[in-house]
Amino acid sequence: MKEFRAASALGERVSGRALVAADNFSARYDLDRISGIFSRAEHKLAGRSYVGLVLVLNTVKGGVASAWMLREMKSRGVVPAAFAFNRVNPIMVQGAAFAGITMMSGFDVDITVAIPDGAQVALEPDATPPVLCLF
């Protein structure tokens, strides 16, 4: 097992399979939130389901809609299990906090390189410092 330390984290402990890409994220720009897939043709995860997976991406882009959308997605169960980003903007922090979805950012490595797509991971936001574990 390897551990990757994060600068910031919120939410509860989560484990699951990672969905990884060296790409960015916006709930409005990139997702078909009804069917639970990445719908933006240019996205590196286009056509893939994100439901129940730990999304590991570079950073966040675009607008403010994710702040509401994450909670709405969670209410229907069509939502990632958690997020891990190299960097975040305030909207993702606000959205994850509002929705109660676990999130981490600010790793000491490029997390999209460190975590293989499909790997089993666990997020421990309450640890000091917060860690993402790769099994």
Partner: peptide, 8 residues
């Protein structure tokens, strides 16, 4: 200002 999503 920062970006303030709806809830914030």
């Amino acid at each position: 200002s920062n970006f303030e999503g709806g809830p914030s």
